[in-house]
C-alpha cells in the first residue's frame, strides 16, 4: 500500500472506524485513542498490507485493541441486559433509531460489536467472524440474540406496545 492509499484509507474508513469503536465503548476519548493506535499500527506495516484488505484489517485491529482496553478498564465491565429489570427505564425518546442506540448500550460488548458491524458496515457473517475471531455460527447467534434483546427493550420501555 502506498502513502496515497494510506491517506485514502484514513479519509475513507477513519470515521467509520471511530463510529464503530465509540458506539462499542461509549467513550469518545478512548475511541479516538484506539483509532489513532490502529492507524499508527497500520503505518508501521503499510507496505505489507494490500489496499483491498485494509478495511477488514483496520476493523480487526481496532476491535482487538478495544477488547484489550475493555479488559484493562474495570469501568467498562459489560452490563448484562436480560437480568436487570432496572435497566428498563421509561424511554423518553420516540425516535426509533435513538431508542435502539440506547438499547444497544445495554447489550454485552460482543453482541454490541457484531450488531454494529452488521448494521453500520453491512458486513456478512463470515466477515464479522474474521474480524471478531468468532465462528460464523457464534456470530449468527450473537446477532439473533441481540435483535431479540433490542425488541424486548422496546417492548418493556413502552416504546412498542
Amino acid at each position: 500500500m502506498t502513502v496515497k492509499e494510506y491517506n485514502n484509507a484514513v479519509r475513507e474508513f477513519g470515521d467509520h472506524l471511530y463510529r464503530f469503536i465509540y458506539r462499542s465503548i461509549r467513550d469518545k476519548h478512548r475511541a479516538g485513542d484506539i483509532v489513532q493506535d490502529t492507524y499508527e499500527k497500520l503505518w508501521r506495516c503499510v507496505t505489507e498490507i494490500e489496499y483491498a484488505a485494509v478495511k477488514a484489517w483496520l476493523f480487526t485491529s481496532a476491535y482487538n485493541r478495544m477488547i484489550d482496553v475493555i479488559r484493562k478498564d474495570s469501568r467498562l465491565v459489560d452490563v448484562e441486559f436480560y437480568d436487570d429489570a432496572s435497566l428498563y427505564a421509561e424511554e423518553s425518546s420516540t425516535d426509533l433509531n435513538e431508542v435502539l442506540h440506547h438499547a444497544l448500550e445495554r447489550l454485552p460488548a460482543v453482541q454490541r460489536s457484531v450488531i454494529l458491524l452488521r448494521d453500520y458496515e453491512g458486513y456478512h457473517y463470515n466477515e464479522i467472524a474474521e474480524i471478531t475471531g468468532l465462528t460464523e455460527h457464534q456470530v449468527k447467534t450473537y446477532i439473533f440474540r441481540g435483535r431479540v434483546a433490542l425488541k424486548n427493550y422496546l417492548v418493556k420501555t413502552s416504546v412498542w406496545q
Partner: peptide, 20 residues
C-alpha cells in the same frame, strides 16, 4: 430493528494523514 449510523466524525482524523 436496524441501527442507522449517526454522522459522527473524529476531529483528530486529519492528524493521521501522512505526507506524500
Amino acid at each position: 430493528l436496524r441501527l442507522t449510523p449517526y454522522d459522527e466524525k473524529w476531529n483528530g482524523l486529519h492528524s493521521l494523514m501522512r505526507p506524500t
